[in-house]
Each structure stands twice: as C-alpha cells, then as structure tokens.
Design a protein around this nucleic acid. Structure first.
Lengths: 363, 363
DNA sequence: CCTTCCATAGAGACCGTTTTCTATCCGCCT
DNA sequence: AGGCGGATAGAAAACGGTCTCTATGGAAGG
C-alpha cells in the first residue's frame, strides 16, 4: 500500500526544463567537453544550483560500462598494518579521483568470495585483496577463475601482501619480502648470540604470512648452524595482543627454555612483552624480543621494539597505481604484474645478548 | 581510434538467450520472488553459471532509485579510534547486506564537502560523518543544507562523534559524552591531589572534540575549587605521537611547573610518556598522566595508561543501525535522532598522588 | 541575394535491469 | 461443451544519464 513515488529524485530533465534547454545541453555543460554558448551555460549552472541537482552515478556507470571505483577486501580494518595499507591505497585512489569500496571478511574465505561477487556486481575498476590467506589448490582454482572473469570484464584482480596464485595470470601482485624479513630478524638474534629462539606465530593452518615468516626463521637458523628445534615453534597464536600474552605466559611457565622470542607481529610482541614483565623478567636482559610489521606501537613499547619494517602504506599505494595504470595504458590486459618490496630490520632496544642459558622461571 | 566495443559485459539478455527464455524470466529467477517452473529455473541457473554472469548493480540501482550502500567519511582510517568506529559501522552494514563506501578527508573541510557530493551522486542510503570538526556558522549552514538535500533524496545524514548542528534537522547524531569523560578524568586527577594539571590538546582552532574535552577539564577544576590556570592549557598539539612528544619536551624544559598531564588522546599521551622518560622522570611517581579514547595502545604502555573509555565500535554500529532502521521503518523522515553514549574513566597505572610541588627539571 | 560553413542546440537511441501489463496453456467446474 | 481462473512466460515501458546524428541560425564569401 506504500506510495511508490514517495521521492522522485531531481533529474537532468528537471534542470533542462528550468533552464529552458534540452537534456543534451545540460549534460554538455556538466561534462564541459563541448562548446556551449556562455549565456546558456550560465543559465544551466544556475538551474543546477537552484535545484541542488546532483547527477546519478548509476545512470552514468550504466552507459559508461564501468565505474570510477576501486574495491578493497580486507580482514579487519582495525589491524594497524592493514589500516596503513588501506590508507595508502585510499590516498592514491583519491588522488586519481576514484572512490573506494571497502569490505571486511573477518578472515572468512566464504565472506571473501561473497565480497568479490559484490564487487563484480559493482563493476569496480579493480578489486584489491589485502593480507594473507590460506593457500591451497581449491583457493588457487577459485582465484584463477575470478582473475579471468574480472579481466574479461575490464577489471583487475590485485593481491596485496599475498603471494601469486601461479604464473601467467591476469593478476597484479604487490608483495613484500616476507621471508627475507623473518630471515633478517632471526639472523639478528643469532648474531647477538641467541640459539634458542621461540617462534610465536599462528593464524589458520596454511596461512601464507605465517608460512613465509616461519620459513625465513628456519632458513636463518640453518644458515647459521643453529639446529631448528621443533619444540620452539608455536603456531597456534591468534594475531592479537591477548593471544600473544597468554601463549607467552604458558611458555614461560611450562615450556622448554629459550633466550629470545620472534613474534610474528608487533601486536603479538606487545602481548608477549607484557607477559614477560608479569613474570618478573625483563626485556632484553632476560629475554630478547623482536616483532614484525613496524607499526606505531613498536616505538611506544618500553623498551622500544626491534622489528621488521614493512612498507604497508607504499604497498597499498602501489596496488592502486599499478592496477589503474595498466588499464589506462590499455596494455594487453592478460599480462601479469608482480612487484616485491624490500623489508629490513629496525634495531631498537628489545634485543641484547643472552645473559644465561635460557629462562624457565616457574619450574 | 580505440575500439569502442572492446569489452561487452555479459548481460541478462545473453543468459536469457542461452537458456531459451525471456529476459523477464531470468530476472525473476534471480529475484526468486515470482513463480517460475522448476525446469525453467534450473535451465536459467545453469546458463548463469556457464556464462559466469553477474548482474549489474548500476542498472538495478537505476530502476530502484537507491542503493544498498552506506557511505563513511572519515579523517584518517589509521587513527585507532576512528578505525574502531569504522569497524563497528562496517560490521553492522555487512550484517544488513550493505556495502560500504569509504572516503578520507585528511581533516580538510573542502575534501569533506567533495566527499559528500560524491556520496550524493552514489545515492548512498546513508552518509556517515565520523569524527570531530571545526564548528562555525558557515559549517552549520552548509550541513543543514546537505541534511535537507539528503533527506529529500531519501538518504540520511549521520554525525558520529560530532555534535548536532541545531534542533529539528533531519539528522541522526550519535555522540559520546565527551565533556563528561574529560570531567571525570580531570576529577580523578584532582581527587588524587593534583592541582596543576597540564591540558595537552589541539587540532585546528574551534575543533569540537578539543572544545568539549577542554570544557570538561575546566568544569572539573572549578567544581573542585582548583583555579584554572590559562598557562597550563596547551591547544596547539596535533593528534600525533610526535606532536605529543615534542610539546611535552618543551613544557618540561621551559614551562611552568605541573604534576600531571591530561592528554587529549591516548596517542598524544604515548608521546608525552616517552618525553617524560627521556627527561629522566617517571610516570606516575613524578608526573601523572591520563589519556582519552582507550585504544589498544593504552594497555601496551608501561605503566598502563589511565584513560577515558569511549565505545567507538558501538558508536559506529549504532550510526548505521539508527539510520537504516529509520528508513526501513518509514517514519516521517524529517525527525531528528540523537543518541549520547556514556564515557568513563578506566583506572590503570599512570596516576598517583603528586610527590612534590610540580616538576620543572631543566631550570 | 544565394550558398557555405561554423557554432550551437535538440531528438532520440542506448546502457542493463525491474516491473507492470498481457498472453497463453491447461485443468476444472457448471 | 464452454467459460473461468491459476500458473507460467513474454513484451515493453520505465529508470537517468551520454552521445551520435541531425537541425537551425547567422555570418562570411561569392
């Protein structure tokens, strides 16, 4: 029973009527790409202002066949690292006059798929996936299909902070050297004399970020003649302060001895640091600690956290830049793009040579 | 010279042709709101899958006259407080099957205006402004106009963490009790014996957030018989760690004596804490410190920061919920909505009674 | 004075959906 | 047997823009 015509938006036709011109003329005044007499132009502009007219993007997009929109799909906007990437991407998009669509998945692959579908419906110029994922054959198949669909539709799939899905796909990959960062961080600890280094990582099984960081950790130990002790590898930590805190407490009270911790993220390192203090130990005197990501928190911790710098903002910016330039350049779109940013250790105050053979205070 | 028809998207017509039915039938299968024979439905669904067909939102939005989209306009997605609000809003929007458009203004009112214009073009169901602003008559006039335009177009203007622009406007305001939080924090310091409390705040002149927090600070002092010393009010701090750090250093080395700092945000408090330590002083023994926002950082600082809890996530969630329920409820849309969330002090470890008459170490 | 051409303006097709209004088929009731 | 109504399907008109093609007026040139 509801009135169907409760609101009728003011259209280009209303403007035309009020200015006493045709619809085409109004369109041309707005676009500014066609000669219109000065007097007419002014009349139209006045009508637009008086009616408070705003063009309808959807009508435009319909005839154009595409949109000035870039889509981001991210696990959680609250993660400081992701936030930095989104910020860089948003900034670059805004610079190019693009609008941003954002969707959160909470780490759920189902929701990621649903989000991609929504973005396809939206005809976004690019769909940017930010953050690691669980890599398995099914995932690759799905992504390959999506990449091709988007490509066929004139859009582009971008993976940001996530490894490629295979060679020769119409995909833009913007990564950072995840493994090298972990290698450097671990080597840094080893060079200070540590041999029993607890790896504190996690995420879902098969998570790409964890896998790469763990690989770097292992390689660095091997290359330096330190045996890899599987007992010192913990991969059930969630990426939260709380989880880092609780796992560290547990390891301090009942694990094998260690003299240093390599935390998979700075946030986890923050939790670990709190747990260490609570046990009456200190950083770095009793236990050295390194993190990963170099988020602002790292400098606010005391001691300041030695960590691995990842250029997240630049990562986001490049993701947008590469995808849009590819389209504007009109290159044969099938081509793959792959960029890897460097990472490096930022030495602060949370690492020192081990004082003894490793702590295990409670037992 | 470019080919105009380089990509033609696969349309509902293609699906209809392949399934051997009419366009209407395909539409009905997708909507599922009209009886279609089982056999036909299956044929259509197969065709959709085979062609990898995805409906065009813009065409839909055009006939529907509106979109399933909620727009956020925010200063900076990296701010942990804003990020929490955006997250709450995004979550609630997703729960209702809405997509989110996000735009960043970098605190520039011009860009805020431009962003709102873009969102109007997009026919978003609601436009949510997150964070404080500079409040002056020109601002109110502009916003009132925008509120009415959006209302007329069947959309809704929402102010989140920002005061109302006047009575009886078609606006949804979701605030927190900013002044009461500042009052409580200041009163907390006074109750511990502090009388010389440095207010460390800033933002652009006339910024609503600063004004309210400063008002709470003043009122708390007055109500407790502590004279307000204008010399102890610093309002040129930017909302960054660096700015908090530098201003604190300057005050410690060349300002009048004080025994406590009320920092306008936790991030600023983080910088202040670092500066205090660097001067060889300690928190809370030499100087007590309170922040505002209760972001995750507050618990990672050492000592843990006493601060004011603001339910940012809930704020964002409510903003979306109220706006959408209003539209769905089909209430006479002119009505104003106004919700104020409570704030309270979270006591941690950064406040203690003053040890002496106030520090001024360098002179 | 008539043609030609430029500058400007309008008419109308089209973009991909939804939705109303019709049309058909078929079984059932009278 | 004929009319009726329910179930299903199609035709075509919107939705609000852009853009191509055509039309008109007047100035310039012969």
């Amino acid at each position: 029973m509801a009135r169907r015509d409760e609101h009728r938006q003011t259209t280009i036709r209303d403007v035309a009527a009020r200015a006493g011109v045709s619809v085409s003329t109004v369109s041309r005044v707005m676009a500014g790409d066609y000669p219109v007499a000065q007097a007419t132009k002014l009349r139209v502009q006045r009508a637009i202002k008086e009616l408070n007219y705003v063009a309808n993007t959807h009508a435009r997009a319909l005839v154009a066949g595409s949109t000035q929109t870039v889509a981001f799909i991210v696990n959680d906007v609250r993660g400081p690292a992701f936030a930095a990437a989104v910020h860089g991407a948003e900034q670059e998009a805004a610079r190019r006059g693009r609008l941003c669509l954002v969707c959160t998945t909470e780490g759920d692959p189902e929701r990621e798929l649903a989000a991609i579908h929504l973005m396809r419906e939206q005809r976004a110029s690019a769909v940017i996936l930010i953050g690691g994922t669980v890599d398995d054959p099914a995932y690759r198949t799905r992504m390959a299909e999506i990449a091709r669909s988007l490509d066929a539709a004139g859009s582009r799939l971008v993976m940001c902070g996530r490894p490629p899905i295979g060679a020769d796909m119409p995909v833009t990959v913007v990564e950072y050297d995840n493994e090298a960062g972990a290698y450097a961080a671990t080597a840094h600890l080893v060079s200070r004399g540590h041999r029993r280094i607890l790896f504190l990582g996690g995420g879902p099984p098969g998570f790409t970020t964890t896998a790469a960081r763990l690989a770097g950790y292992r390689q660095a130990l091997e290359d330096n003649g330190v045996p890899v002790d599987p007992e010192l590898i913990e991969t059930t930590v969630q990426f939260s302060r709380t989880s880092g805190y609780e796992h560290t407490r547990r390891w301090l009270s009942s694990g094998p001895p260690f003299t240093a911790i390599f935390a998979e993220t700075d946030v986890v390192a923050g939790g670990a640091m709190a747990a260490i203090f609570e046990s009456g130990l200190s950083v770095p005197e009793d236990i050295s600690l390194v993190g990963y990501d170099d988020i602002p928190l790292a400098t606010d911790l005391r001691p300041q956290l030695t960590t691995v710098r990842v250029p997240y903002e630049e990562l986001g910016r490049s993701a947008v830049r590469l995808a849009l330039e590819l389209k504007e350049g009109g290159a044969r779109s099938g081509s793959e793009q792959h960029v890897v940013f460097g990472t490096h250790v930022v030495v602060r105050q949370s690492v020192a040579p081990p004082a003894h053979e490793g702590v295990r205070p409670r037992r």
